[in-house]
Design a protein around this nucleic acid. Structure first.
Lengths: 203, 203
DNA sequence: CATGATACATACATCAATGTATGTATGTTT
DNA sequence: AAACATACATACATTGATGTATGTATCATG
């Protein structure tokens, strides 16, 4: 049922078109921001007509739900795999790899749009909540059944906020690494390693 | 010349109207974001007609320059006065007081708009650069003639990015303090005090 | 005080985005 | 294969924002 081969031709075409629209929407958000991410512009970039957009999504808010989930998925590609340690340093490196991707700007744009537009806000609420879980320290640092120490959680949240700051800086500057980005990463790394070593000694 | 009394009636009226427009623009950015911050909406909130807007500003980008500078000024109201120590802890407390003000959202909106719209970007470049100086660790921590240690600068930049993250979180959530905001502040405070105490021992 | 400049308001034309209705080709089912 | 559904494209009407032109009252100045 969920196999590609088991999909009808119509279902495959639908999925392909929706992917075109979702990718175009993200492209648009990254390129020109939310205010210029209009239905016509998305369709132009997707190479489809507005009829297709209207057929698959009642309004842009619906499309943005798919787009946000897709963006979160893209940021997940550097996943917490086996080679990434389940500690604060791993949390830092993983988060850094995420916020420095261009899709992060699309996410920020949708965060703000969600706050600025009530309709978008209500429709995106679930996707945003699900996405926030990706940053949850417990997911990254915590052991499968164990909880994380409050000190570790606080450090991870601090790392998270600093990474969001760096990501926003990149999104705004447009260029790559900011001047003090390395220095900030160094401080965060020191903070993470300090917590991690203290945790090991606790056992 | 710069005295209020020395201003002509016309000049006073111009200043008052421009202030109405600037305040309305900031209100609008905070309330409904950049995409809905349109000329008509600004004038509606300011209680003037579009003729007034057009008379004082050739386009919205020009108004946004004044608005951004005004927003930065508002964030400056908790200024680095005598009671705020010139160290990392002072930098943290000062920055926190700034990013938690509602005007910070308007600044973020304009940062992104500046990146998304070439015209706005070129016109806001100077104001953004001037505003970034407000976050410059040297301005807050550094002594008048002395430079700041690289370690102090790195810590301040880290604090800055984390504060921006917290500020963005507030801007997006709309509500006040986020759940982990206190915990993050605590970690940052510990970081700042660690650096400050080490600095004192260096002398 | 008369003339010009300033600070707006009003009005209209334009344009881009949207909502919606309908057309059509392809796929699906019985 | 006939009837129906799906996946789009096309077309039109509407709406909101903008550019711009002009009107008008107040102010400034020789």
């Amino acid at each position: 049922m969920s196999n590609v081969a088991s999909l009808t031709v119509n279902e495959q075409r639908s999925l392909a078109t929706r992917k075109l629209l979702v990718d175009a929407a993200l492209d648009c958000l990254v390129d020109v921001g939310f205010s210029r991410t209009t239905g016509v512009e998305i369709c132009r970039r997707a190479g489809v007509t507005r009829g297709a957009l209207n057929h698959h999504y009642a309004d842009l808010a619906e499309l943005f739900v798919d787009a946000l989930r897709s963006a979160y998925d893209m940021l997940l590609s550097p996943a917490p795999s086996g080679d990434m340690p389940h500690n604060c340093e791993g949390y830092l490196r993983l988060g850094y790899a995420r916020v420095t991707q261009p899709e992060f700007k699309a996410i920020v744009e949708l965060w703000l749009a969600s706050r600025n537009d009530a309709e978008i806000g209500s429709q995106l609420a679930h996707a945003i909540a699900d996405g926030s879980a990706l940053f949850d320290p417990v997911r990254i640092v915590g052991q499968p059944e164990g909880d994380v120490e409050p000190e570790v959680a606080a450090a991870c949240r601090t790392i998270q906020e600093a990474l969001i700051g760096l990501g926003l800086g990149r999104a705004v500057s447009g260029a790559g690494e900011m001047a003090h980005e390395r220095a900030v990463f160094g401080v965060l790394l020191e903070l993470a390693r300090g917590i991690d070593s203290r945790q090991r000694n606790d056992c």
